[in-house]
Write a protein that binds this DNA or RNA. Structure first.
Lengths: 189, 189
DNA sequence: GAGGATTTGTACCAATCAGTACAAGTTGTA
DNA sequence: TACAACTTGTACTGATTGGTACAAATCCTC
């Protein structure tokens, strides 16, 4: 038996990866025990609520990361261009240049959407709001909300396209183009 | 027993809906028999290869529709602006204003991506190519390929955002904005 | 060393699963 | 009416499933 240093928090990123790879419904407990290295009993010790609780923990973790690394920096006092570019580089890194999918986006498309409705909605709403407020603060964007929506949806779509074309470089290319546009439109006027 | 008018082709759109709602892996034969109104024996009569063959049939059907209603019109000899606007109205209609997800996109994000790799790839590649060629023909777009990619990925992402925010209107709004931009940029110079 | 906390993985439960086989029932056509 | 084609849904197969229960083993701390 391995050293007892595992905490619930250590398990969550591993769970996330199983759910990304297998999807939520299709991820069996066998696969989860294998991916996490935990026995079934330990899994239920950490997540007495079962798979639902695991998914909830994963969503919390993803959201927490985005709050800290994407939304909060957008709300900082640094120069707007810097904030925007930081968002893109963090997003590109987080999605492993297109090789790692967005779990929240996947859940939004599937049966899980209803079960985690509030959290999924607030994830996207928070992202759009953080970006919108940043753009409004810059004062140079026409229709900041619409632009923010287009950027966030464009990032999600770029993940699909990169996967669909089996070419993660398309993901990165689209994001750089979105970034260039955003920087340009936020400097308008 | 119902009248014997069912053909394989009648069943496919019903299958598509089950897969959209339940996902491929999680869609059980019970649910499929219920949704299609066919007995298990009849299902296997139509699709001896089982669920895989059903998914294949569905993908063929989706692709066929897109070829006929999206890609081919983009390749027609009509005025460019007309072609572009027709694409958007057909896409908005097909995705039921954001209430119906794109199965190819969902498959691209999931385990099915590897199984149906060629077909998923060609779906997106064909779309981008049709749009790119149309833009090139117009002669006014800088970077037609990049723009085409951004539009196709934007449409996919808009589906995620509309679902995620539980507000299909966001889907329609983003698409209209993409359309406006496309029309503007294809009229440049 | 003692003892509480953690971990393991099996037995069990009740259920479901995709696919195979096929007898019985129904439909459609000549 | 006869008969081929189609449809049905059950029995069966071998497998897997999430979750519960828990004895035994191991770890960690005092």
């Amino acid at each position: 038996m391995p050293k007892l240093i595992a905490t619930r928090a250590d398990v969550v990123p591993l769970l996330a990866e199983v759910f990304r790879t297998r999807g939520f419904s299709a991820a069996s407990l066998s696969e989860i025990t294998e991916a996490t290295g935990l026995g079934k009993g330990s899994l239920y010790n950490f997540f007495p609520g079962g798979k639902d609780e695991m998914a909830q923990a994963v969503l919390d973790d993803v959201e927490s990361w985005f709050q800290g690394e994407i939304f909060a920096p957008l709300r900082s006092a640094r120069p707007l261009g810097e904030r925007l570019s930081l968002m893109f580089s963090n997003v590109i890194e987080y999605f492993a240049s297109g090789r790692r999918i967005c779990l929240v986006g996947v859940f939004a498309l599937g049966m899980e959407r209803d079960r985690f409705e509030d959290q999924i909605r607030s994830f996207f709403a928070d992202w759009i709001q953080a970006l919108r407020l940043a753009l409004e603060e810059g004062g140079n964007s026409e229709q900041p909300r619409e632009l923010a929506e287009e950027v966030v949806s464009g990032i999600q779509g770029a993940l699909i396209l990169g996967r669909g074309l089996n070419d993660p470089n398309r993901f990165v290319a689209i994001l750089h183009r979105l970034e260039d546009r955003l920087l340009k439109e936020s400097a308008l006027r």
